[in-house]
Write a protein that binds this DNA or RNA. Sequence first.
DNA 1: AGCACGATTAACT
DNA 2: GTTAATCGTGCTC
Length: 197
Amino acid sequence: MIHMPTKLTRQAYQRPTLEVARDLLGRRLVRITSDGMRLSGRIIEAEAYIGVEDLACHAKSGRTARNQSMWGPPGHAYVYFTYGMHWMLNIVTEQAGFPAAVLLRGIKPEEGLDRMRQNRGGRSDLPLADGPAKLCQAMEIDGSLDGLDLCAPDSPLFIEATATFQDKAVRVSPRIGLNTVPEPWLSKPWRFFAHST
DNA sequence: AGCACGATTAACT
DNA sequence: GTTAATCGTGCTC
């Protein structure tokens, strides 16, 4: 029997969003494609979006058809479409009824590199999954996965409990790409990432 | 009904 | 550093 890390359980997601975001660094995101191929990579960048008061969070406008997954139980996917062309993957956190999630912004690919390369246009000169939309394109994640329960036994998307990164390997910064979001939300240090060197 | 803009990316000067 | 691509969403009229 080959040793495999266990899946993160719902309790891992049902916690304060900042804790979850930090805790996801180093974990392995796994995607089983519709034709049964296993793609995976270690999470190296994540951001927290927390509640209706956070004016960077989609929940700021209340519960809508688009953001309803964020209001549901933790451990589910919130996948949305933006800029007319890109999908973004979030993991829902906290208790059901409280809208919050962690945006996955980057992974270090481990399994299925050839397939991911193919998904990214077959080019060797473009990075594979170092941005939220690139990650989704590489791992074949789109709106059909919105609302998916990552904790379900047969889920085609889940996170394995590989070791988290040590504190000395983790950096924090304001969130990326918020543009017109006002303070104090614009500067909240809610982005966590593994630093190089 | 119209409009401004987006939790981005790749290409270009 | 700047900008086009491309369209769903939420807000205003």
